[in-house]
Design a protein around this nucleic acid. Structure first.
Length: 559
RNA sequence: GGCCCAUUAGUCAAACGGCUAAGACGUCGCCCUCUCACGGCGAAGAUAUGGGUUCGAUUCCCGUAUGGGUCACCA
């Protein structure tokens, strides 16, 4: 077989050489130890949690080493591509603080364009580049064409191949497929010419020289030392439309773009032998690989499953809707990525997570379960450290989008809203009421709408409640400071035979009709409609005298 | 089914082959306390399993089980 001739037959339009491509994309001039990483999603939908994970790793490794972080759009499967998905991915990633130095970006006109010297960054636009290397492989006898008629191709696309294979016996199918594959290797140059003349499409397959009985030693930065079988499958390099498969595009792109660390999910581990073979055939230096464990969820049977697109908590847009701040999600991700992050953060509570020295060695090699409890805890801590002003802005912005009526209430009097969020804020032990912006409404909605959510406990004497409320109204003076205010409440307690001191009450509960806590509760339910609320004195101050009196008066009337 | 990966409390996780197997979240109890929230103290709760190597194994090796992944002209 004259491989050179075969290469010319298959790729007559390719005139460039691999060496010319190398010259076009020279190594970057970066400081020692700088890492070049990339996030390479296929534009088939929204960003999900499992995608934010590797992109955070890539971003951190690149930016804390003075390297480059790229976005490459892997749109080699037109069938699965979703319109506008790429733009959505970029926007969502940006929302979570993931910024790219190079790659596909959204231009001023709102469409995707390239930034950087190693593009194009959309694989669908890199066809000529792949063909240069494909031609090289053919000319070296390392790849060969397999022709199909158009009819066969249509049948192939129509059938649900995966389901078909699953239904069959695995062994039978494998041996059958292998025989077919070996037979296809024997194609002659005459047959190639005939097929080309007939206009039949072809796929380009690699000529595998591996022996699966032999093992390759390989070191993954996360998984450690692995022994994987050599590849003996003549997998497809170019599909019949001339577009490369993931495997081929990965090898060519990551080499030409100078990727130093390939970060991807561990579902790629089984195809690693293919990639090692490709890098070897092409004479490319192997980058470092990091195969990260998948995020899991629990299915209805209590088994772990890979977190997939349809799952709750998968779509990052869900987090926005639920009212999680991006910073909280990012921090939660950091706790999952590096086990020592939390420790570092406790010692450096004021520093942003980007100051944390991210360490590959500290990464877990087994998949973790998504935990909303933990997210909420992380989130409460972050929000508790924000200023009242910031919380006001964030909650208002969230509510205006997702709960417009509430948003309108919040923005009617921003100073009052801020005063509400200032309760118990600041200092060493701030309140931690909010994990999400959506938590704000149940927490402080009573300032705007009076709803009597909670009733007085049945054990309380209605007459006592009424007397206490009436006496409070009689003595209430909004000019009182907190001490004066509380002294008056104590006075009311004494007047109706309730203990004004909890210790005294606990020492002998039978000596009193009730205690100061009960009296406070009478007021609290009247003013807030709830059993639980932040500091009552401050609540009354913010509500103002008129509203406070009105609410108490209304309650008295119902008693 | 073949191959690959994994396995320490409900969850996330520490522990050069060497104290009584950390810590965080969650749960529960107590304290503080005008409720809630915060905070403090405490409790329950784990090395999947069977062999080996070793003075000694969560750690190293082999088997088993369980879970996950993968086996496309998808990525």
């Amino acid at each position: 077989m004259d491989y050179q001739k075969l290469a010319e037959l298959l790729f007559p339009h390719v005139t460039e050489t691999p060496a010319a491509m190398e010259a076009k994309f020279p190594p970057r001039n970066l400081p020692e130890g700088a890492k070049v990483t990339r996030f390479a999603p296929s534009p088939t939908g929204f960003v999900h949690f499992g995608g934010l994970f590797p992109s955070t790793i890539g971003e951190r490794l690149a930016h804390q080493s003075g390297g480059v972080f790229m976005l490459r759009i892997e749109d080699t499967d037109a069938k699965r591509e979703v319109d506008g998905a790429a733009e959505g991915l970029i926007r969502t990633l940006e929302h979570y603080g993931i910024r790219f130095d190079e790659g596909a970006v959204i231009g001023e006109d709102g469409t995707i364009c390239d930034k950087g010297d190693y593009g194009p960054y959309k694989q669908s636009q890199r066809g000529p580049i792949y063909h240069v290397f494909a031609k090289q492989l053919v000319s070296e006898g390392k790849a060969y064409p397999v022709f199909t008629t158009k009819e066969e191709l249509e049948a192939l696309n129509a059938a649900d191949k995966k389901a078909e294979i699953k239904a069959k016996d695995w062994h039978e199918d494998q041996t059958e497929a292998r025989e077919k594959m070996l037979e296809a290797r024997n194609i002659t140059i005459e047959e190639v010419e005939e097929n080309l003349k007939a206009g039949n499409p072809f796929v380009l397959r690699i000529l595998a020289d591996g022996d699966p009985e032999k093992k390759l030693r390989f070191t993954d930065l996360i998984k450690g030392n692995l022994e994987i079988p050599e590849n003996d499958e003549d997998f497809v390099l170019l599909k019949s439309d001339g577009i490369p498969t993931y495997h081929f595009a990965h090898a060519v792109d990551d080499h030409l773009m100078g990727t130093t660390h390939v970060i991807r999910g561990e579902e790629w581990l089984p195809s690693l032998p293919k990639h090692l073979m490709l890098f070897r055939y092409l004479g490319f230096k192997l980058p470092k690989f990091m195969h990260i464990a998948q995020i899991m969820r629990l299915d209805e049977n209590g088994n772990k499953k890979k977190l997939s697109k349809r799952d709750m908590g998968a779509n990052m847009d869900d987090y926005s809707r639920m009212g999680y701040a991006p910073a909280c999600v990012c921090e939660y991700i950091m706790t999952l990525l590096n086990s020592n992050y939390e420790e570092w953060h406790m010692q450096n509570p004021e520093k942003p997570y980007t100051d944390f020295p991210f360490n590959i060695k500290k990464m877990s090699n087994s998949g973790c379960l998504f935990d909303f409890n933990k997210l909420n805890d992380v989130s409460k801590n972050i929000i508790s450290r924000m200023s009242a002003k910031e919380v006001t802005e964030q909650v208002t912005a969230w509510a205006l989008e997702y709960d417009p009526a509430f948003g309108a209430q919040l923005s009617r009097d921003p100073a009052m809203t801020e005063a509400i969020f200032a309760i118990g804020r600041g200092g060493k032990k701030p309140r931690k009421d909010l994990a999400t912006w959506a938590d704000a409404k149940p927490y402080m909605g009573f300032f705007f709408d009076y709803v009597q959510e909670d009733e007085y406990d049945e054990s309380f004497d209605r007459a006592d409640i009424k007397t206490a409320l009436e006496q409070f109204l009689a003595s209430y003076d909004p000019a009182d400071d907190m001490n004066a205010w509380f002294e008056k409440v104590k006075g009311i307690a004494r007047a109706i035979g309730y203990a004004d001191d909890m210790k005294a009450y606990k020492a002998d509960p039978t000596a009193f009709r009730g205690n100061i806590a009960d009296v406070s509760m009478f007021l609290r339910v009247a003013v807030t409609g709830k059993l639980n609320a932040p500091d009552l004195y401050t609540v009354m101050q913010i509500l103002g005298e008129d509203e406070t009196r009105a609410r108490i008066t209304r309650m008295i009337e119902t008693l």
